[in-house]
Write a protein that binds this DNA or RNA. Structure first.
Lengths: 219, 219
DNA sequence: GCATGTGAATAGATTCACAGCG
DNA sequence: CGCTGTGAATCTATTCACATGC
């Protein structure tokens, strides 16, 4: 006989990964209201996705539900949190202390615990030494030191587009393993580095596309 | 014989729509450098996607390329711009004048022309009348008037999560047809309204997921 | 009985590979 | 000959529908 020891941890599809943070948030909310058991239907309603999808997504994590009953809120919160890395601290470095960079620093909590911005740098010498949201703006030259000293794994690019690639290169060679890019330009990084993009202009353009193409084509 | 009049405008897949802004930006950049003809390979390199995908995407718009040559930069820029609605003005209303709302207003140009923030409102009476980025913060009660007077089609939610749904409802009933939601919560809107979400915490969590699951599972 | 968990079916997106045409 | 445009193949994601087990 073949012993089936630990749950073989199936590979989690990317689309599922993108929904886990959502589920986590909804679960925390429901648990805060006192719900201790949560059905896929409740989770589906709270997160705006189909219940079958919820179940399929959660099945990739293992078997945390009870048939006829639902999922244990605590167990699921714990498990999703573990997968997402919410059990550890993720100090974040922001590059670029313009409008956006400063807002990010001011955005205390960042909507989620564990992701604290611990440093912000800018290439403009005039900005150096200024305080923003409790942090002192440092020089870009300090990136390597900051990443090493503070064990930074995630860098945020909040610079103008034209320097974004060079900033990305610098973050990567300083040892950052993940980058969140707000600059409206495609940056490339080695395959070992994770990269995500947040692009306001793109979002607005997608919205106006849909406005224009509302079912009966308007004027 | 059957006359085939205008290009039957195939339905553009959502994944393609999301890439059109990217192509547009790359094309504008290349055209600014003097390139008048652009191949799918060049576009692919500039936008970081596969060349076959570029061609397939562009084929949904119609036939704008010349075999053996490439695409006319001007023609493509014009056509993509038309699809995305870049030929018209899209006045934007921001709800919430906290850190993020103020940064958005200050983010002049918004990375793209045509999407100008023309008003910002906040529920806090103490903020009313303050100027931010050339705009005076108005009361939330003014939303209906502002949307009607300024012909606002796109609303941006930059409030805390707990009021996001009520803000969304208000924007919808005021007549806004598209919403960009920055609050870390799922809001629902009628199917006639387009909705997109930008969620910093989610992005960071996806990044840390990938950090943790870097091929050889680390400690 | 009831809600999970999951194979099977379907839909959607990406990639391949090459015919078609300037 | 080179690059577009596109059917066909593949891969990924979603949805269905029901067997499974508390």
């Amino acid at each position: 006989m073949v012993a089936e020891s630990d749950p073989p941890t199936r590979r989690i599809p990317e689309a599922t990964v993108a929904r886990l943070p959502l589920y986590h948030r909804v679960l925390v909310d429901l648990a805060a209201r006192g719900d201790t058991t949560i059905s896929s239907d409740q989770l589906a309603i709270g997160s705006g996705v189909n219940a079958a999808k919820v179940r399929k997504d959660l099945s990739y994590l293992g078997t945390y539900g009870t048939r006829g009953v639902g999922y244990s809120a605590d167990a699921l919160i714990h498990e999703i949190g573990r997968e997402l890395g919410l059990t550890q601290e993720w100090p974040v470095l922001v590059v670029g202390a313009g409008n956006l960079g400063q807002a990010l620093v001011g955005y205390r909590g960042f909507g989620a615990r564990g992701y604290e911005i611990v440093a912000i740098v800018d290439s403009d010498p005039a900005k150096r030494g200024l305080e923003v949201g409790g942090l002192v703006i440092e020089a870009v030259d300090e990136v390597e030191r900051i990443v090493a000293d503070r064990r930074i794994a995630i860098g945020v690019i909040a610079t103008p587009a034209d320097v974004a690639q060079e900033v990305a290169d610098r973050l990567v060679s300083a040892g950052v393993g993940a980058i969140l890019n707000f600059a409206p330009v495609v940056v490339s990084v080695p395959p070992t580095v994770s990269l995500r993009k947040v692009d306001l202009a793109t979002e607005l353009q997608i919205l106006s596309f849909h406005q224009i193409h509302k079912h009966g084509t308007p004027a």
